[in-house]
Amino acid sequence: MDIRLLRSSDIPLIQHANIENLPENYFLKYYLYHALSWPQLSFVAVDVSRPPKTPYDYPKIVGYVLAKMEEEPADGVQHGHITSLSVMRTHRRLGIAEKLMRQSQLAMVETFGGRYVSLHVRVSNKAAIHLYRDTLGFMTEKTESKYYADGEDAYCMKLDLDFIRDQIREEEEDDDAGEEKKKKKKNKGAEGEEGEDVDEGEAVGDVGRDPAAGSKGDQKIKVKVGRSLGVGELIEKDESKHS
């Protein structure tokens, strides 16, 4: 098993895994929309043990998480959303779903400054609910009645991602303790507009993390919205797929 970032060329087999496993399906372009809008957020689990049959074999996808940032958050808070997550029945119990989720959550914070992640899950899907609630720490926000096309209700679940911010900050402090001091002075000026705190370290070295994610408080991040991005059509399709 190989857990790694999604690539465009994976998409046909991600789509295959999706339609094999789940009733909520999407056409290829919708996957592309994710892969080209938030390429940092979607991950796949690949079965690398299959010997290739031809020079044109594509890695078999046995699990994937398709994630996005909410384009126009209703609450004004930057947050991620899990569009689809599934693992082939044959590859369960290896913790693949959990690993995929954790990678995606980390990137949501690092790259896009996400404060929380939301998702929908069928109320009858005990295994998934167990993963989200017990393993990953999601809370059930509300129940959306008849969310799915077949009339089933969905739990709307949320996970606060501030714990990842805190982790990142701690790691930065540990890793950069020495080097940080030298840099601090230099960066102060540039950071002024962000209402900086002494804790907000600049990332240094190979394990440095997103500095924006390390900043404190409810600072708002500018989000481009609406028609200027020309994504209207795709958003619309997203909604129609959910219902």
Binding site: R7, S8, S9, A35, T54, Y58
Partner: peptide
Amino acid sequence: DFHSFSLRKGQIRAYIDLVRWEDQLREHP
């Protein structure tokens, strides 16, 4: 759509990756 969409989104590396893949699209099994 992504020729213009990706410019607006700014995700250029992912876009280049897409263009290169599309060039080989029909080699897919």
